[in-house]
């Protein structure tokens, strides 16, 4: 096994790659130089391997590669072009949601007397405000908080799932 490189190595590699017979001085050198002998053999094997691979290779045609690239480029460009629209739509949706919540709050404030008269609202308010002397949380109160929490978690997730493909 070689332990150093040789100054004739480049010439040996070039000759092997070209498939030429080594000239007499180089052949004499290779016969006595383990490094060059190994390099020459390695180049011969790998160069032949490459030739065999090229001979058997069924490379896709230029037209096919171009066509696939064109389709992909169009798809990516279209996605890039619609990305700002998606962002604007999401911001608009958030703004509308905020507006609706504000309007609902105002309406609730104006209509609080009428709402307070509703039995279901009274029952809900009672359930939310009732405090158990033992410190336990009531079932209705727990359910309301769980629903509110689930909505808080699920809303951004649903928005993400709905918009991710765009």
């Amino acid at each position: 096994m070689m332990t150093r490189t040789c100054s004739h190595e480049d010439a040996v590699v070039a000759a092997a790659l070209a498939g030429h017979e080594l000239d007499a001085p180089l052949e004499a050198h290779v016969a006595g130089c383990a490094n060059c002998r190994e390099v020459h053999a390695l180049v011969s094997v790998l160069h032949d391997d490459r030739a065999d691979t090229l001979a058997q290779a069924q490379v896709p045609s230029a037209g096919l590669v171009w066509w696939k690239a064109t389709l992909r480029a169009r798809h990516e460009d279209a996605a890039r072009a619609t990305r700002p629209i998606t962002v604007v739509a999401a911001v608009t949706a958030a703004a509308v949601a905020g507006l609706l919540v504000s309007v609902a709050g105002l309406l609730a404030w104006w209509m609080q007397d009428a709402l307070a008269a509703q039995p279901i609202v009274q029952a809900l308010a009672a359930a939310m405000s009732t405090s158990d002397p033992s410190g336990a949380v009531s079932g209705v109160r727990l359910a309301v908080w769980l629903v509110a929490g689930a909505l808080l978690v699920a809303t951004p997730l649903l928005l993400y799932v709905a918009l991710r493909d765009e």
């Binding site: 096994m1 290779v30 002998r37 190994e38 020459h40 053999a41 390695l42 011969s44 094997v45």
Partner: peptide, 10 residues
């Protein structure tokens, strides 16, 4: 193979 060099050509 090592003794003959890779490919055994030398």
């Amino acid at each position: 193979t090592r003794d003959a060099g890779p490919g055994g050509r030398s």
